[in-house]
Amino acid sequence: MDITFKQVDYTYQANSPFEHKALKNLSFHLPGGSFTAIVGHTGSGKSTLLQHLNGLVRPTSGSVQIGEHTLEPKKKPKQAKELRKQVGIVFQYPEHQLFEETVEKDIAFGPRNFGVAEKEIAKRVKESAAAVGLDLSLLSRSPFELSGGQMRRVAIAGVLAVRPRVLVLDEPTAGLDPRGQQEIMDMFYRLHKEQQLTTILVTHSMEDALTYADHMLVLDKGEKYMEGTPVKVFQDRQALQQVQLDVPEIFQFLQKTSERFGKQVAYEGENVDRLAEQLADLAGDKHE
């Protein structure tokens, strides 16, 4: 599903002393099947942007188009529920939303709300649990007996079980151990590819943005600051540093290398082997 923001403004508590503009004149287009990373400093409007994606909020002005659904300031979306079925959001620390007696019931909660047939639900629960790497023996346990990492997986499975066409991830790996982070991100990437999902990842990890995304959006104070492929965005380290962001380690490494050898080594997204060859050439030059 394509997602288009057209000159979206969003103001909290308009016309009150606490008025606060969270989004300003934001326009972008995300084609269906793309993997977009959204980065920005705290307070840049990322969370507000996310809430537009399934109609939790409507723009104060401008419009948001998600597939066939349009969100506009005055009109209440007629099919908010249908939109939410299509757009799954994994919020920050999603384990905080668990409430059912068993893991199984909690995963089934979403599909049940959206009116999926009971037989189909049972099938989906097993599928999503397997997808997030949950042992099926855990399904009958209480979610509150599980470890933090397992709870996170249960919550994610609960979103996946609805089978959304758009997957929105708000720092899905925050607070997990490094191995868990890698597993979860790889799992999302696999799903993205297998089911041709449109994926939107909000992250503080530039490494993740570089590894998984094919498109990147940098926000600053509610405005679009940069947009493009991650490799292109990361070329401009200075611009990123101005908004308290930095580039992935590989770019920092290559920049230092360039300074040290007085020769440009540009990173165009090539694999490690090719990069090593380039570096070897550089070192070779120096020795001769």
């Binding site: 809430q51 399934n54 939790l56 529920k81 939410r84 079925k85 757009v87 799954g88 959001i89 919020f91 920050q92 999603p94 905080h96 939303q97 909660f109 979403g110 049940r112 709300n113 959206f114 609960g158 979103v159 609805v162």
Partner: peptide
């Protein structure tokens, strides 16, 4: 704040 967050999360899971 907590209430708002959870209310958003559950609304996204189809609660009205």
């Amino acid at each position: 704040q907590e209430t708002e967050k959870i209310s958003n999360a559950q609304a996204s899971r189809g609660v009205d």
